[in-house]
């Protein structure tokens, strides 16, 4: 299998997961496609730096995390260019998406290491084994992170201020 076939297969396998990951991290709906493509573009460009092909998923996921960081910094820098509505075009224009923005707010409040595990487990329906491969951590560590993410979410959900219904 040459590089092209290998990366094609990996990209096809991961594009859905990355889309979910970026959407869960409040990447604007109109930007998700570009951000996912940027990840694949960078992966292809720097494919020679990949040492172990078995760890390609965690490698691509770490690229995705960096791309997300850069994206969020850019949004922060140019915040004045976007209006509030434009900033959350997809989430705020639809009145039925109150619950969606509620979830995104909560997910955003989670620390990075818990957030990634939570998204992969609950949004992407990945197993603990798959998550540990993607994040390059042990399964027990993954379980602990998942448990702590749940604890954090529980304490947030128990908070009186969140309830507006």
């Amino acid at each position: 299998m040459d590089d092209r076939d290998f990366f094609s297969k990996v990209f096809l396998e991961m594009k859905g997961m990355l889309t979910g990951y970026f959407l869960s991290n409040k990447v604007r709906f109109q930007d998700v496609e570009d951000v996912v493509n940027e990840v694949f573009f960078l992966a292809w460009k720097y494919k020679n730096t990949l040492r172990d092909k078995l760890k390609v998923r965690s490698w691509i996921f770490s690229i995705a995390k960096n791309v997300l960081k850069v994206y969020k910094n850019n949004i922060k820098k140019h915040k004045s260019r976007f209006s509030e509505v434009d900033g959350d075009l997809f989430y705020s224009n639809n009145p039925n998406d109150e619950d969606l923005s509620f979830v995104l707010e909560l997910i955003e409040k989670l620390p990075d290491k818990y957030r990634d595990v939570f998204i992969l487990f609950y949004i992407e329906d990945k197993s603990v084994k798959e998550i540990s491969e993607i994040l390059n951590i042990s399964e027990s560590n993954c379980k602990i992170r998942l448990m702590r993410a749940r604890e954090k979410l529980r304490s947030m959900l128990e908070n009186n201020d969140l309830y507006s219904g």
Binding site: G20, L23, S24, D97, E98, D99, L100, S101, F102, V103, L104, L106, Y122, I123, L153, R154, L157, E158, N159, N160, L162, Y163, G165
Partner: peptide, 17 residues
Amino acid sequence: VYFENSKRFVSGIEKLK
């Protein structure tokens, strides 16, 4: 409060999916 927030949360997760 916990239950109402949880319902919103579960519904939000479904919508996100």
